[in-house]
Design a protein around this nucleic acid. Structure first.
Length: 318
DNA sequence: AAGACGAAAGTGGTTGA
DNA sequence: TCAACAACTTTCGTCTT
């Protein structure tokens, strides 16, 4: 295979390893398909091996928690790194000349430069934010993916990279149901809530990516852990929120406020004293909002909650 | 004294003409 | 583009623990 024909393949890399021969046609020209990660015979297309992607870790972890998470995910390919973490793992062979290999490397580097150079600073910022905001890996990867989508549509041009990264970070949190507030993310990037919000709306209108409003439930565990409340409160609060949704009093309301109201209700039921102020502070709403949600819950959810507790024996689903 | 409660007025965002 | 609107916030006075 000539270098020219390699270039035509673009996403594929010649990888003829020593002794690797296609069992079907006997060809020694085996290539890697970068889309699937498979070893493929360039002549007849037979898939010979699963993957030549490196199997070791190609990521770092910032904490034991993150290590565990990443180790479990186990994927060596990540959109959160330039070239999806594959950039240096190019072909190696004894069958093409040193000269050809050098040329190949150069063209690869050139390709990387064009495609990836622009987004590198963004990915660096993203990783810094992820560390500080303590985001799980899959959220970071989603953010990186969204950034790539936005970048490939030219939405970054003429806008601040900072605002862009902040917006995709926030979006990824929403998509992966990680309870983080726009305010928190904006302040990390030293931006106003308004600016991040505007950028957020702009790109997702353009990208046509739908992002549903957050569920109140995701904030419950956040409140509970912040105020060191028992598990029983979580269970009661979630139950209350479920009922609230069924009777339609969570629609259009601030989800975090609803969560705080539900948790307050739960603490009252459990005889635990926490002030409305504490609850409000945990999810960045005011006491008044907590109070209003609580009042609604007390009026409309409480009766149903009691009824359910009395009537049938607890079912397996709960 | 601190927390809970509710009323009233102000604010920023959404919606529909 | 503008006005109406709902939800939330701020502020404040009163009641309860």
């Amino acid at each position: 295979m000539s270098l020219n024909s390699f270039k035509k393949l673009k996403s594929r890399v010649l990888v003829t390893e020593e002794g690797e021969v296609c069992p079907k046609c006997g060809s020694k020209e085996i290539i890697v398909d970068f889309d699937s990660g498979e070893l493929v015979c360039s002549k007849c297309g037979l898939v010979i091996g699963k993957s030549i992607f490196m199997e070791g870790r190609d990521w770092r972890s910032f904490s034991t928690e993150e290590f565990r998470e990443r180790a479990r995910a186990g994927a060596p390919v990540t959109p959160a790194r330039t070239e999806y973490g594959l950039d240096t793992k190019i072909a190696y062979t004894k069958r093409i000349s040193w000269r050809a290999l050098t040329s190949l490397r150069r063209s690869q580097r050139y390709a990387r430069t064009r495609r990836e150079k622009n987004i590198m600073p963004a990915l660096i910022k993203l990783r810094a934010a992820a560390e500080r905001l303590d985001l799980p890996t899959h959220t970071v990867e989603d953010a990186a993916k969204l950034y790539r989508m936005a970048a490939s549509k030219g939405l970054v041009k003429g806008r601040s990279v900072n605002a862009m990264v902040a917006a995709v970070t926030y979006a990824a949190c929403r998509r992966t149901e990680v309870p983080r507030f726009l305010e928190e993310i904006a302040s990390f990037f030293n931006l106003s809530e308004k600016e991040v919000g505007r950028t957020f709306r702009f790109i997702f209108r353009k990208l046509k990516v739908k992002i549903p409003p957050p569920k109140p439930e995701i904030y419950v565990s956040r409140i509970v852990s912040k105020l060191r409340l028992p598990q029983s409160v979580t269970i009661k609060a979630i139950k209350a929120l479920r009922i609230a949704r069924e009777i339609g009093i969570t629609l259009g309301r601030e989800p975090a406020g609803a969560a705080a109201g539900a948790v307050y209700l739960a603490t009252q039921m459990e005889g635990i004293s926490r002030t409305q102020k504490e609850l409000a502070k945990a999810v960045l709403v005011t006491e008044v909002t907590v109070r209003n949600r609580y009042r609604e819950f007390l009026e409309k959810v409480m009766p149903i909650l009691k009824e359910e507790a009395e009537s049938p024996p607890p079912s397996m689903e709960d």
